[in-house]
C-alpha cells in the first residue's frame, strides 16, 4: 500500500503536531535531492502515522530549491537560507521549524537508507532515550563502498574526538540522528557551530544536560558526489573540537547524569 500511502501524504495536510518531522539539510543537491525525497516519502508514509518533511536549504546556488518547491507536496516544507552558512545552520533551522513529536535529521544523499528510521524511533517512543544516533562503528553496523581516504580520515577524526572531547560514543558524525522534540528544541537552541562539527556540539550539550543517547548500528553506503571538501571539513572539525568546551565554558546547564551508564547505550545490530 505504500504508493497509495505516499499519494495520501502528498495531498492531505497533517495535523499541527505530527508524530515525526524528517529534516533534510541541502546545499547544491539538485543532482541527488529528488530520489532522496522519493525514498523518504515512500517509506515514512507507509509507517502509519502523521509526519512532515522539512527540507532546509543552506543557500544553494543551483536549482535545488526550485526542484523541491516545484514538487507541490502538501506536507513538505522548504526553508531556504538566503546565503550559505554551513550544515549546522541548516539543520538547526530545520529542527527549530519542525513540529513533530520526534525529529530525525537525515543527510540528502541517502547514505543511511531511510528504512532504518524504525529502529531509530523505537528507543525514543519507549522513553529509553532522548536521542538516538546512527552509528557506523557499533557492533552490527555495516559500511559499504567507503573510500580508503574517507575511512582513514574518519578513523583519525574519531581518535581525535576520543582524546579531546570524550563522549563515549563510537561514531559522532553519522548524518542520521533522531531526537524527542523536547531534546531537539533545547539542544538546537543552544547550538552555535554552523559547520560540520555541529553534531559534536549537540552531543556535548546532550551530555551536559544529562540526556540519554542510544547508538543504533546502521547500514551505511557511501554515496558518491559529495558537495563538500573533506580536507577543509577535517580541519574545521579539529578546530571546533577544541572550541566546543571553550564555547560553553562557564555556562550552567542541567546537572550531569547521576548514572553515567544511562548516557550511552547501544542497541542490537541492524536487521
Amino acid at each position: 500500500m505504500s504508493v497509495a500511502d505516499f499519494r495520501r501524504w502528498a495531498e492531505m495536510p497533517v495535523g499541527p503536531k505530527p508524530m515525526l518531522s524528517v529534516v533534510v539539510p541541502t546545499y547544491n543537491e539538485e543532482w541527488r535531492i529528488l530520489p532522496t525525497i522519493g525514498a523518504i516519502a515512500n517509506h515514512v508514509s507507509s509507517l502509519g502515522f502523521e509526519w512532515e518533511l522539512v527540507v532546509s536549504d543552506d543557500g544553494s546556488s543551483d536549482t535545488t530549491t526550485d526542484l523541491v518547491g516545484a514538487l507541490g507536496l502538501t506536507n513538505l516544507r522548504l526553508i531556504a537560507a538566503p546565503k550559505n552558512q554551513g550544515k549546522g545552520a541548516a539543520v538547526r533551522a530545520g529542527v527549530l521549524a519542525s513540529r513533530g513529536r520526534y525529529i530525525l535529521f537525515a543527510d540528502a544523499d541517502q547514505s543511511t537508507p531511510i528504512e532504518q528510521v524504525d529502529a531509530m524511533l523505537r528507543p525514543l517512543r519507549d522513553q529509553r532515550a532522548d536521542i538516538t544516533i546512527g552509528s557506523r562503528a557499533s557492533d552490527g553496523a555495516q559500511v559499504a563502498k567507503k573510500s580508503l581516504l574517507r575511512q582513514t580520515m574518519s578513523r583519525g577524526l574519531q581518535v581525535a574526538v576520543r582524546q579531546l572531547l570524550p563522549l563515549g560514543l563510537s561514531d559522532t558524525q553519522c548524518g542520521f540522528k533522531a531526537f524527542t522534540a523536547e531534546a531537539a528544541h533545547q539542544l538546537f537552541s543552544l547550538q552555535r557551530i554552523d559547520g560540520f562539527s555541529f553534531d559534536l556540539e549537540i552531543l556535548y550539550l546532550a551530555r551536559r544536560h544529562g540526556m540519554n543517547v542510544v547508538e543504533i548500528p546502521v547500514h551505511w553506503i557511501d554515496a558518491p558526489g559529495s558537495t563538500v571538501d573533506p580536507h577543509r571539513v577535517a580541519l574545521g572539525f579539529l578546530r571546533d573540537l577544541i572550541g566546543i568546551r571553550l564555547m560553553h565554558a562557564g555556562k550552567h546547564y542541567a546537572p550531569a547524569p547521576t548514572n553515567p551508564d544511562r548516557y550511552v547505550a547501544s542497541e542490537g545490530a541492524v536487521s
Binding site: S2, V3, F6, L34, P35, I37, G38, A39, A41, N42, H43, S46, L71
Partner: peptide, 11 residues
C-alpha cells in the same frame, strides 16, 4: 517497486 515508482513520479 514502490520506492522506484515514487522516485520516477517525482522526477
Amino acid at each position: 517497486s514502490d520506492p522506484v515508482r515514487v522516485i520516477l513520479e517525482l522526477t
